[in-house]
């Protein structure tokens, strides 16, 4: 994604957080730059993760053999964990980007008012996740409301946002590994 694209998304997020007002408020204009910078850094870290993934040379591919698919997935997961064994929260999502994402989500939920609980009814109840942990096999993957997803920074194809308890994960869906998360992004009343 180009810097221009990130700036556009930053403005979109800012507008979303402000309730979509098109009032050209100076404060909003001033806030765009720090948000854009944070998102640019976020994008760069995501690119870094993708480069790491590609370097592992254990990519998944189609097979009719479920045993082989399982083995490849486990092998890739092990490689990712080893490569990121020192990863900690915030490594992928810079704090400023996390704040922007949280604001976007909060604003979105406010707009939905009473429907928020229904929208997030699939979110599994869960304790705070661990970096590099495997997403629990018996937990459903929460569906991020598409209109909310539309306002969040784009993730590369293999990565997905998922709510988990009150937290927002970045999950590598191909290996089901929690790469990073933003804690307590959902209000307590919804969970």
């Amino acid at each position: 994604m180009t810097a221009t694209g990130i700036a556009v998304i930053a403005m979109s997020m800012q507008a979303a957080a402000a309730g979509g007002r098109e009032d050209g408020d100076a404060a909003i204009q001033e806030a765009v730059s720090p948000t854009a910078a944070a998102l640019l850094e976020f994008q760069q870290r995501l690119d870094g993760y993708l480069d790491l993934r590609r370097s592992l040379l254990k990519q998944l591919s189609s097979t009719a053999d479920a045993t082989r698919l399982e083995a490849r997935q486990e092998s890739l997961a092990a490689a990712v964990r080893m490569a990121r064994r020192n990863a900690k929260r915030g490594d992928l999502i810079p704090s400023a980007a996390a704040a922007a994402i949280s604001s976007t989500i909060t604003a979105d939920l406010k707009r939905r008012a009473s429907a928020s609980g229904l929208v997030l009814s699939e979110v599994p109840n869960a304790p705070i996740p661990s970096i590099n942990a495997t997403y629990p096999a018996d937990a459903a993957l929460s569906t991020v409301p598409p209109l909310m997803l539309n306002n969040l920074p784009r993730l590369p194809e293999t990565l997905q946002y998922r709510f988990f308890g009150r937290h927002l994960l970045i999950l590598d869906g191909d290996v089901q590994i929690v790469l990073d998360y933003i804690p307590n992004v959902l209000p307590r009343t919804l969970r």
Binding site: S62, T63, A64, L69, A140, T143, T158, Q176
Partner: peptide
């Protein structure tokens, strides 16, 4: 579906 891992897309059947 919401109980499916994205890796199902690699299962040829």
């Amino acid at each position: 579906g919401n109980h499916d891992e994205p890796t199902q897309r690699f299962y040829e059947p």
